[in-house]
Design a protein around this nucleic acid. Structure first.
Lengths: 205, 205
DNA sequence: AATTGTGAATTGATTCACAGCT
DNA sequence: AGCTGTGAATCAATTCACAATT
């Protein structure tokens, strides 16, 4: 079973299951049924089982899943076994908020440096270096950084992306309101706040 | 053709087409083929035509789509004909960054007020009122607000949601890292930064 | 007795292929 | 001649149903 034929949405849900498992662990629950976990994650139990099924039999029939070991397995599947360095590019409003929002660290990601065309200071409020854009490419190469968070204005996004991809970035979390063109070995997840709001507004009467 | 049987993903893409049309308009292009527009939006031309097809024949065979009128139609379809009031709940790091980030206004959304358990000041840097949480429900009712941006910690999210839904909120853009339980007439779009990163990390070698 | 794991059936979305306009 | 609009075909994801296992 190669990685490619597992639906991307299943991978997505794995992260959600992981978060639910964490909460169960905090409450000292050590076994959970697909029914219960699915409910917490907001999906059907059959879907949960199908999702987990891609990675081998992980549960015990008649009993359920061991919270601790399932959580460990998902961790491994997602490739989250060690701290992953990430850079953030574009220290404007949103960028600096994300730097301040320390929540990534807890999940195994470390924002090791940020970059901006015209840094207003040398470090962010949270103590993360803010370097001039001109140093980005060298930094990515020197530290073999594979992940980037992109919070630059829409019109400069594609140019920055070309540079980071050439330097070795393989995954981009894009907040710039634009469609990025990348080679197929690079993966992009886009979060467009205006699109999300616009989409919601369709559904209100 | 009722609203319900149009795929949600099509609605999503409408917003993206809209953005591309805007850019074309800025460049004084007045006609565009499905081929060209689809390329700009990063989708196949057949998909674009199918998406638009749900809302009637919008183009001219042999010619393409009129940029201006297509843009207007999408605007209407998305229900974005007048400024839509939105509240933001939870003025922490992320919440205050979003208040500062004025980008919504341009897209037809106005953050009319924000709420926090313990407001540190009466207005945000951008001049948006920050009111105590206890006033949220009355405010929603008094101003018939239908949309909310939720940026509270995970453990208080569900409680806040119950209150806002009871007061009349119909659509929620949720940044709290948790699964929300809402009645089916309420729609939630969740943006979970940690999940997005985790998902990306699966795809890097 | 309970609950997983999984082929088969179903439902949903995308793409094809081409008829129908301009 | 060119390009849209759309039913049919394909491809993908979800759900069902039940045998297998503890």
């Amino acid at each position: 079973m190669t990685r490619v034929d597992i639906p991307r949405k299943s991978i997505y849900r794995l992260s959600i299951y992981q978060r639910c498992l964490q909460r169960l662990k905090e409450n000292d629950v050590d076994t959970v049924s697909s029914e219960a976990l699915a409910k917490a994650a907001g999906v059907k139990s059959t879907q949960l089982r199908k999702d987990l099924g891609y990675f081998g039999p992980l549960g015990t029939r008649g009993l359920g899943y061991n919270v601790d070991s399932l959580s460990k397995t998902i961790h491994e599947v997602l490739g989250r076994t060690k701290l992953q360095p990430v850079i953030l590019v574009g220290v404007g409003n949103l960028g600096s908020a994300l730097l301040r929002y320390g929540g990534f660290r807890k999940e195994g990601f470390e924002v090791v440096s940020s970059f901006d065309l015209a840094p207003k200071s040398r470090t962010s409020a949270a103590g993360i270096p803010i370097k001039p854009m001109s140093q980005m490419v060298d930094y990515i190469r020197a530290n073999t950084v594979k992940m980037a968070i992109l919070t630059v204005p829409a019109n400069s996004a594609q140019g920055v992306v070309n540079d980071m991809v050439a330097a070795g970035i393989q995954a981009i979390l894009n907040f710039s309101p634009t469609v990025l063109d990348v080679p197929e070995n690079v993966v992009v997840n886009s979060v467009d706040l205006a699109v999300e709001l616009e989409n919601l507004s369709y559904f209100i009467r």
